[in-house]
């Protein structure tokens, strides 16, 4: 993925959610489905704070199936000792990309009575993972004597969270901290995303990091309504809900909308270097989207 982005090609990443059990069969199946259609795939880290197979462990299965993993690393469950230990293991197991994020609060998951950690935050994590690579230093400043993990470091940005004006500042702060690629929250409010990208370009941030626009195909108008009303940090315009409501086949329409969004992003919004397709629990639809959006076949790195 790093090569594709560095070569200036429009990248495609997807997302695989690890299983809530100890069997990796489905993960391998999903990876096989995605193989050849995406440049890399995120492996979520106990997303929405629900216990799942670890992102690094799942990453090993995905890599084995021939797909490049992007390991998600949240700050919710590990202190700085555990994070570094996991990063060392991940690199040794062939992981090459890490996405640093805060992580959803455990209140939303299946262990709401758990403690949370947040020992370091996503900004600090980005900075320190880069330092591990660039300066061969542990977070404490001690030298790594031996092979250091040399991750391609990613971060997330949410143009739909508030305060809107601050979102670009925060993105810049992440890039200053060392983020090399950025995946955004799923975009439905295209107008707001365009305003966001305009500010990004004004500051030349698109030249300093690779920005991948996040998209999520919706399965139904109810799903759209849910995102609109119940998920913090999301903006879903009524027009999308209405369009899905009016459609005969909600799923097909959701895919259509997603493909239109990708084409629009790729052709109309300068500074975007790729798309990140988050087909939550709907991995099998990704090849179709990639193909119909004109992003297939994928370039060889």
């Amino acid at each position: 993925m790093e090569q594709i982005l560095e070569n200036g090609r429009f990248a495609v990443t997807a997302e695989i959610g690890p299983p809530k059990h100890a069997d990796a069969e489905k993960v391998v199946h999903h990876a096989q489905l995605l193989k050849g259609y995406v440049d890399a795939t995120n492996i979520t880290d106990c997303q929405t704070a629900v216990v799942r197979m670890s992102s690094i462990g799942t990453g090993v299965h995905v890599l084995g199936a021939g797909v490049e993993p992007i390991v998600q690393m949240t700050c919710r469950d590990r202190n700085r000792i555990a994070i570094q230990s996991d990063l060392l293991a991940a690199w040794s197991l062939g992981m090459r990309n890490v996405l640093c994020l805060s992580g959803d609060h455990q209140k939303f998951g299946n262990h709401p009575t758990a403690r949370n950690v947040y020992d370091v935050d996503s900004m600090q994590l980005i900075h320190l993972v880069r330092r591990m690579r660039d300066e061969k230093l542990f977070f404490c400043g001690e030298e790594i004597k031996g092979a250091e993990p040399r991750f391609f470091v990613g971060a997330v940005a949410n143009p739909f969270a508030d305060p809107f004006e601050w979102r670009v500042d925060r993105l810049e702060k992440k890039i200053d901290a060392g983020a090399e690629f950025i995946q955004t929250q799923c975009i439905y409010d295209m107008e707001r995303f365009e305003r966001f990208m305009e500010m990004v370009r004004e500051r030349g941030l698109d030249k300093r990091a690779h920005i991948l626009a996040g998209v999520t195909p919706l399965k139904s108008w109810k799903a759209a309504k849910y995102l609109q009303t119940s998920v913090s940090g999301m903006i879903v315009p009524d027009s999308i809900v209405e369009r899905l409501k009016g459609a005969e086949d909600g799923k097909a329409e959701g895919v259509n909308i997603c493909i239109e969004q990708i084409k629009h992003i790729k052709e109309k919004i300068p500074g975007v270097h790729g798309v990140h397709i988050m087909a939550i629990a709907w991995e099998e639809v990704v090849p179709d989207i990639v193909q119909r959006a004109g992003l297939y076949p994928r370039p060889q790195a």
Partner: peptide, 12 residues
Amino acid sequence: EPKDWSKARDGG
């Protein structure tokens, strides 16, 4: 049993 930390600062 493990404690209910949602009653502490962990719960917000």
